[in-house]
Design a protein around this nucleic acid. Structure first.
Lengths: 400, 400
DNA sequence: CTGTTAGCGCATTCAT
DNA sequence: ATGAATGCGCTAACAG
């Protein structure tokens, strides 16, 4: 991002802020306090010739305020550039109009979509979002939660949880609402998520089977800082694949590539795996993050998509569909899921009882051209015009 | 993102924190229970049998505190789960340990990288980040700045500015430090940025010229909600291109594609442009965001990279290098730039005078395989095999 | 060494 | 309809 549009030499820096008029209007010096950096309600009251109580009533449209008094107050406010301190305000109201959003890191498009969803729901409701990253460290995550407590956030949206229940307990101890919520609701949400994810995964797996693939690779990234694959990923993705494939005599190879290294280095891992005795004919990227690496690796290995190998990723993006050929994915609308979750949180904060049903997960298997029939075992050469159309023939015909 | 790891039926919710001790260790504690406020310093004082002042001194390592008193206080703190309210704290200290980060939206990898940079610098220094999006609306941006004032953020990092100086004045009126900073410093930063950007752009343009390209397309996205291309983009990119190309007799076509529509719709714009009387042999994506669309469009138009057309994008990403062929880019390390900028801001907040020199922009032209020599003027038609691959032939290309 | 007290900026009774 | 007074949670003077 560029620094910014250069400021036009306009007037404003001349009228350098009303606060400079520290107390001129009345002349009467209440007390030689240190010049508060900000205009306070007291300043406004003095300027408008009323009491602070009246100012408060005026700006909050509370209680009775004479029309002219209100007008004077509003005028003074504008003239002095008064912004009620949200912090002082929340000292009394015990509501900060702030929520926290916690993720492990900010590298993946998924994180961005998550934040977007949270921001949409929050800003729409007048809340502001405090973002923090745990860097995959449970300790750091707990510090973050402590900080959220210290900031008295009205609630917290957890995108990634690395510290388990112990982290959540920090918020629970202080009765700070969290989504996804703990307890039975979590189980419900989780079940829902896994259901959808598993269904889409199964659909994908069956498609591969139908296309005659008999050896499939599942590519995952080794987590950094000890982030391990959460069990729902395993349940909803890996285990489903294992189940479908084993049931149909398909071999499943797991390829783990290191992380925190360059794309090309990661790619070489893929190449290595691709040069085994028998090359998998379908490759599944377990994470949005590894898909580019996988693609690079396959290219380095000289494998064409979908002629030589089929490719499927988890997590959609403009790039996935822009690729040649477009990559099939199992994808979520992370953003709207996060938004729904956040809305639920806000409703909860405002007194509604949390309604999990409102959060609907919509996982879809989107088939694109990166999927094709499995090439004949050794006919790496025989293919020519066979794949002219978009949708290829079912498995049976691929089988010799 | 999945909801979260399901809570293991572990013990901790049993010992559910002192404040919750009131009741509700069992499952049904889902009520926010606002009335039961947080543990205060007074509670700790009472529990430890000392005064609040002593507690304050103990936790801040201020003044004198007897060893045993301190021990009792710390014990009480831990036992009660006391978290000093950062809000109350900042009422006195006039420091909130909070900074704001403002961007127009959260859709682009650039936004993510920006936030990552800000977060890294901030969290490292004990600050927390308030994120807000202006949605490209100057009004909304000003509201956001007002909110930052209300929150008394110690400073603000502006990623995207859509409201111009008038927006910045809001922060200036309240003496809230901003980066990139206004005034002469901004000019300096800007000049630096433009310098680097222009140099890389020129390098790229000259490369294209050397490769024999005589007709180049510059693809931009029409901003939504009235976001207009800031002048430094024009200066550092477009104008440089115009200069280089016109000086060498290269024609430059500007292709504007609408935004807020699907990728394929955007792509069709590209297709349209590609079917003009004379097809540009090199295509430059003005923004990270339009690159996938451009690629999709070119594919739909049946154009191969780099045989038919060369492609260059602004903004790097794993996908750009994973693409077939890898896409050449003019790229920044947005993340570290944002981090440097934020560090500068924090230093400024803590009293240092802002040192612009610390922020170094490193723009690079990264040449990858998406660039090749310009094809001969009319060879386009001879190679009909180009379109026989996966992509269906668009109607218009049936034209001989 | 420690307790008492006075605000920080604001909203809210409770008297006028 | 309005102003004085109270307190939110905390820190910093100022006495002990």
């Amino acid at each position: 991002m560029p620094p910014r549009e250069p400021p036009k030499p306009s007037k404003p820096s001349q009228s350098a802020g009303p606060v400079a008029a520290k107390r001129g209007t009345d002349g009467r010096v209440l007390r030689p306090k240190r010049p508060s950096a900000f205009v306070t309600i007291k300043d406004v009251a003095a300027h408008a010739g009323v009491s602070v109580a009246t100012v408060s009533r005026a700006i909050n449209d509370n209680g009775y305020v004479a029309a002219d008094a209100k007008a004077r107050v509003l005028a003074a406010m504008k003239q002095l550039g008064f912004r009620p301190s949200q912090r002082a305000r929340s000292m009394r109201s015990s509501r900060t109009m702030t929520i926290g959003a916690v993720v492990s890191e900010l590298v993946n498009l998924v994180h961005l979509e998550f934040l977007r969803g949270v921001d949409e729901a929050a800003s729409q409701a007048g809340y502001v979002v405090l973002v923090a990253t745990s860097q995959g460290s449970p300790e750091k995550e707990r510090e973050i939660f402590q900080r959220m407590v210290a900031e008295r956030t009205d609630g917290v949206v957890v995108g990634t949880l690395v510290g388990g229940q112990r982290s959540l307990d920090i918020l629970a101890e202080h009765n700070i609402p969290v989504v996804p919520p703990p307890g039975p609701l979590a189980k419900q949400l989780n079940a829902s998520w896994i259901d959808k994810e598993a269904a889409a995964t199964r659909e994908m797996a069956e498609r591969l089977i139908a296309l005659g693939h008999r050896r499939v690779a599942f590519v995952t990234a080794r987590g950094v800082s000890g982030i391990r694959t959460p069990s729902f990923y395993r349940k909803a993705r890996f285990e489903v694949l294992v189940d479908c494939f084993s049931r149909n005599g398909v071999e499943l190879n797991v390829v783990t590539i290191p992380r925190g290294v360059t794309t090309s280095e990661m790619a070489s891992e893929v190449v290595k795996a691709a040069h085994g005795s028998s090359v998998p004919t379908a490759w599944i990227a377990a994470t949005h993050l590894v898909l580019p690496s996988l693609l690079t690796g396959l290219r380095m290995a000289g494998l064409d998509i979908p002629e030589d190998v089929s490719v499927i990723g988890y997590g959609d993006s403009p790039w996935a569909s822009a690729y040649r050929p477009p990559i099939s994915v199992v994808g979520h609308d992370v953003s709207s899921e996060a938004k729904a979750l956040t809305s639920m949180l806000l409703g909860w904060i405002e007194g509604e009882s949390p309604n999990v049903a409102k959060v609907e997960y919509r996982t879809r298997f989107i088939e694109r051209d990166s999927i094709g029939p499995a090439p004949l075992a050794k006919s790496k050469l025989s293919r020519s015009g066979a794949l002219s159309r978009t949708r290829p023939v079912p498995a049976s015909s691929a089988r010799p």
